[in-house]
Design a protein around this nucleic acid. Structure first.
Lengths: 187, 187
DNA sequence: CAAAGCATGTAAATAGTTACATGATTTA
DNA sequence: TAAATCATGTAACTATTTACATGCTTTG
């Protein structure tokens, strides 16, 4: 007979693990989580401010987070960190054998797909804009990997930095590909 | 004084243009649109069956599509094709000067980002799974570009085939990157 | 004749976005 | 002291997904 609760591994969705993961890298407020997502996982996983706060409460009630009021003067804030149950849930999720869903939604590529509907110069322009987009993103990623190691991997985390590589490789490849296409389209 | 309607360029969202674009490549039913999306744009733009039918009706009422009953025996079906107004709307969308939104959602990368929470062999396994995923997708893309030129570019459309290149380049780059990481993680 | 594919639909739930509101503290 | 940043929240809307239902035709 159990006298304490059995932690049934509740089914959490991505946003929950995003929060859990971010807080594992260091205690923080809802606001801080949003900030971290913007400066780090933005290119492959986002969350809106509106989703964060209700989720934090749920996760605290489920015992995966520990929250404590930490008001600064008249500004109320609640600081959260991950419990050992929360950490276990995060680890279980990372190791879980499930398909690793990859979803790409690209208005630009869709327009290229239908570009037979427009004339050549317009199609060329479209590819050029795609290249500019990748160039901008690549620049941003490069800046992050140089200066921006910053807070997150101070705590001994090395993987956050590694993920930047995927973005860089992808956009380097796309920039090259765009240049090839531009050459063909310009005859 | 106008006696005929002025076609105010109604604001359509991506799913509408996806439908418009697919039908420009050849008349078809809702079912057929879904099929085309699965075999062609699936990796960068999707639509669910549920969204298609109501949208088809809207677009027909707006004069952008022409629909006609085309029942096969007792099986009712409605065949749609694009009007000149529909084509104009599609062209306007392709040429429109708006940011070309790119959105990537990758559970795999997110897990890698948090992989400091698990031990080395588990992290290595994760990267390996990411590579397998890219290898599967690449294979699929390669098959499409070989055999699968198929129906869509029969109609003289060359751009559908070109978009495959972006996917291939991306996953080739990722496979290479995964191998590097695997090397590092195995010491 | 059973299974797979063709074709359209409803209902309900969940997810995610936009816009806005509030008020404090820190920085220029 | 104005502007930027910190911090949390509500309301309304739009998008998307899941599950199911129906019934036909074609293929093995």
């Amino acid at each position: 007979m159990r006298h304490a609760m059995l932690l049934i591994p509740m089914k959490l969705r991505q946003p929950a693990y995003l929060i859990l993961g971010m807080l594992r890298l260091g205690a923080g407020t809802g606001y801080e989580i949003k900030r971290r997502v913007e400066v780090s996982t933005r290119y492959f996983s986002t969350i809106s401010q509106v989703q964060i706060y209700p989720l934090l409460k749920e996760l605290e009630q489920a015992g995966l987070l520990r929250g404590q009021a930490d008001n600064r003067g008249g500004r109320r804030r609640r600081l959260y960190d991950v419990t050992s149950e929360g950490e276990a849930a995060l680890v279980e999720w990372i190791e879980r054998e499930e398909p690793l869903d990859l979803e790409l939604r690209d208005v630009g590529l869709l327009k290229v797909f239908f570009a037979d509907a427009v004339d050549r110069p317009q199609a060329l322009e479209l590819v050029r804009r795609l290249r500019h987009r990748s160039e901008r993103i690549l620049e941003d990623l490069q800046q992050r990997s140089e200066g921006g190691a910053s807070e997150l991997d101070d705590a001994g985390a090395r993987f956050p930095l590694l993920t930047l590589g995927f973005g860089k490789k992808m956009h380097e490849a796309w920039i090259e590909h765009c240049r090839e296409l531009e050459g063909e389209l310009a005859q």
